[in-house]
Amino acid sequence: MKNLYVFGNEYLEYDKFAREIAKQIKNVNIINCRSPDELLEINDNEILILDVVKDIKKTIIINNISQIKTRKLMSLHDFDLGFFLSLMKELGINKKIKIIGIPENGNIKEIADGVKACI
């Protein structure tokens, strides 16, 4: 069974949607991540990530880490998934990564179906 690494804060309204969608997905092993460094020692052939992407209307797939807009690391609080994946790439930690990006909100069933089709 594939692993699906789900990011987002369950306590923040604008950041918990990926977790809600993940609950609708069957036949994958859901792993809720709290820190991006959990990806460091994963041995999956392809790391499958589910996360919310700002300002999109439909579910998208990101295969190329360069597509992720990286903020400057101003403080330790900016050490987020985007920064971490970019760092992994720069360090040559060449893991195959597929990010399923979902909108910040929307119809749960429709978005979950879209995510299933991407897995």
């Binding site: 460094d37 400057k72 690391l73 720069e90 360090l91 040559g92």
Partner: peptide, 23 residues
């Protein structure tokens, strides 16, 4: 360097040490 990202290629072992310590 402006950031750790910019120095990542040249200082890979050092940043890997950082990541292992943090982890």
């Amino acid at each position: 360097y402006e950031s750790a990202l910019a120095m990542a290629k040249k200082y890979k072992p050092q940043l890997e040490s950082a990541l292992f310590l943090m982890k």
